[in-house]
């Protein structure tokens, strides 16, 4: 139980640092500068969140069933190949994935969502697959021995017992996702990347910061949200955080 304690500590530290930086910025008049981008920020944050939510949910909606199907015995032979392919997929830089998706679907929100979804798919598929395979054989034997159908076994025994591992995959996936979203601007997907990249281009550090700071905060919030979700959804009996 060291890890959650540590992460909580890290979050606390981050908050304190932010507060300190904030007060510094206030004195230097930086805040006022940043504040001038308020309207842009509010709009772009909305877009940013939209991108994360849509591509993230899609990745979960595709990744969990895909991992589940691959873990079924009758796909055992295919599964290994599929996992290898997906593994190679991760070595492709996310920017390249976005570029490929643009060449496929053109410019705009759609290719951005598609690219982000693909980039965050693998950890979810992989963790669902291994999580389900790691459910001990004797639990499955007990389940089928008392007369569960394969579907009942999946829903009542296998998924709940793999859920913690699946959530770990989702957390990794969303971390990748949130980290990649600013790049979506490059293929016309919008989001806070607009302020960051334009700020860099125009050599306007405050504009860049107005994009970068909310991006960082969003990343942290998403991570916290997933952690809370995992804490609440993973059944108590198999949740190491609730021992």
């Amino acid at each position: 139980m060291k890890k959650p304690a540590f992460t909580r500590f890290a979050y606390g530290l981050a908050l304190v640092l932010m507060f300190a930086l904030g007060s510094l910025a206030e004195q230097a008049g930086i805040l006022e500068e940043l504040f001038s981008y308020r309207e842009d920020v509010v709009y772009l944050v909305g877009q940013h969140i939209e991108l994360v939510l849509i591509s993230g949910s899609l990745a979960i909606l595709i990744g969990v069933p895909l991992g589940t199907v691959l873990s079924r015995p009758r796909f055992a032979k295919m599964a290994e190949t599929a996992m290898q392919t997906l593994n190679i997929g991760t070595t492709i830089p996310t920017l390249a994935i976005l570029a490929l998706s643009m060449s496929l679907l053109g410019i705009g929100m759609l290719p951005a969502v598609f690219g982000l979804c693909i980039a965050s798919l693998l950890p979810i598929v992989r963790n669902t697959y291994t999580g389900l395979l790691e459910v001990p054989d004797h639990l499955k034997e007990a389940a089928s021995g008392i007369g569960m159908t394969p579907m009942q076994m999946l829903i009542r025994v296998e998924l709940p017992n793999a859920l913690f591992v699946i959530f770990a995959g989702i957390r990794t996936a969303l971390a990748i996702n949130v980290g990649t979203v600013p790049l979506a601007f490059l293929i016309g997907g919008g989001g806070l990347g607009e302020l960051i990249f334009t700020g860099i281009d125009l050599d306007e550090p405050f504009m860049m910061l107005a994009g970068a700071i909310p991006t960082a905060i969003l990343a942290i919030l998403v991570d916290i949200a997933i952690a809370i979700l995992a804490f609440m959804i993973v059944p108590k009996g198999v949740n190491p955080l609730r021992a």
Binding site: P136, H138, E141, S144, G147, V157, P160, N161
Partner: peptide, 22 residues
């Protein structure tokens, strides 16, 4: 098979309680 098994109580060697359930 499912019908058959529901009429047979089965205690496996490794106990096999479902850890996710009370």
């Amino acid at each position: 098979t499912v019908e058959l098994r529901r009429n047979i109580g089965y205690v496996i060697q490794q106990i096999g309680l479902f850890p996710n359930m009370t």
